[in-house]
Amino acid sequence: MTTCLILDDFQDAALQFADWGRLAPRVAVEAVHDHIPDRDALVARIGEAEILVIMRERTPFPADLFARLPNLRLLVTSGPRNAAIDLAAAKAHGVTVCGTASHPAPPAELTWALILGLARHVAAENAALRANGPWQGSVGTDLAGARLGILGLGKIGTKVAQVARAFDMTVSAWSPNLTAERAAAAGVALAPSKEALFTQSDVVTLHLVLSPSTRGLVGAEDLARMKPGARLINTSRAGLVDQPALLRALEEGRIFAGLDVFEQEPLPADSPFRRLPNVLALPHLGYVTAANYRSYFTEAVEDIEAWLAGAPIRVLG
């Protein structure tokens, strides 16, 4: 019988959101709920499994890992892309890599949870209320009339812009390839430059795909241009921002940040991002909704069925 392991199923959700029984009796499916960061322990846990289902970039798959898994034949990742998989190495080792759909609404919604949470000090006020602390200990920041700068105007950025207009915010966007026509079609203005976006915006939110050309796109100079007290929101990928520069800007108290993504996940216990008072941090929840999980795992089952039938679908690379 073929063995399938589902890695990093933190919430014990994978088996609940799809009918894995469709694979019986050809495939034995098992979910692994703990993250296994140690490479030797990971290889030992995977063992001779021929099929792996992975959740986003929780466990990277570089070339040296494929080399240590000679029995692996199918790797299914949630989402239509996964920068943490070495696709060339997968092909060289005879591993088919398939993806799934991913909905843009959940990360757009979480972006607004972070924006609103920072603007109205939701986490601090809730903690004070639970601790019987000061009543009304903060003064909120108005969004109406403020400027939202969107770095990356794809499906998610466009949804974020729609909500911003409902809040009566002024919205501008910029990305390396964004045109005035595309910006206008989304109902926003094209910022004349990245520098202008960071200088003029009260809130900057990132919605770009991480690639060699976008890694570190937001540097120390951009963060220094932000208005005192401005908010930086990142529900995309941590690598878009120079992390040491971001940490310095936050420790200096010049800006606020709403962060859902980090270079190392789960976030280390001693990470400064856990303690800084001007950071509202979440454990990468942008895609973690029932609708997305239903799509991820249902389509993972479909990917496995198609591969077993000799006609793989949604193949990456």
Rank of each mutant, 00 (worst) to 15 (best):
V261D: 07
G239Y: 07
N234R: 12
P283V: 15
T289R: 08
L206A: 02
P192I: 08
L282W: 07
E252N: 13
T199D: 06
G187A: 05
V218R: 01
L223V: 13
V288G: 04
V209M: 13
A300I: 04
A189W: 02
S271T: 14
Q243G: 02
G258C: 12
I255M: 01
R248D: 12
G286C: 09
P244D: 00
L240T: 11
L223I: 03
G253C: 03
L250E: 01
S201W: 11
P244T: 06
V279W: 06
F262E: 00
H284T: 11
V188Y: 07
F297E: 03
L276M: 11
S193V: 14
R215Y: 00
A238N: 06
M226P: 03
L206M: 10
V204N: 06
G216A: 05
G216N: 04
F256A: 13
S193Q: 12
A186Q: 01
V204S: 00
S193G: 10
L246Q: 10
R254A: 09
E251D: 02
A300W: 00
P277C: 07
A191V: 10
M226T: 10
T298Y: 05
R275D: 08
R254V: 10
A300G: 05
V288D: 08
L208H: 12
L232D: 05
L247I: 05
A191G: 03
K194W: 04
A224Y: 06
R225K: 14
A238L: 08
R231K: 15
T289P: 00
L206T: 10
P277V: 02
L240G: 02
G258F: 11
A238S: 13
L247K: 11
A291N: 08
K227C: 06
A269W: 10
L210A: 15
L206F: 06
R215E: 12
S193N: 08
D242C: 09
N292H: 02
V209I: 15
N278P: 06
L276K: 09
G229V: 10
G216K: 04
D270F: 09
A291H: 09
F262I: 12
E221P: 05
A196D: 13
S295L: 00
V288N: 14
D270A: 15
L232N: 03
E265V: 14
T235N: 15
L197I: 14
L282V: 15
L276Q: 01
L206P: 03
N234I: 13
D222F: 11
A191R: 01
R237M: 09
V241N: 07
R294L: 00
S236M: 12
A230N: 05
A186D: 03
R231Q: 13
P266E: 03
F256G: 05
L223W: 04
V204A: 08
E299Q: 00
T205D: 05
E221Q: 15
A196Y: 12
A186F: 09
N234C: 14
M226G: 02
T298V: 01
Q264P: 01
Q264K: 14
Q243V: 13
L276F: 02
D260W: 14
L259N: 08
A224F: 00
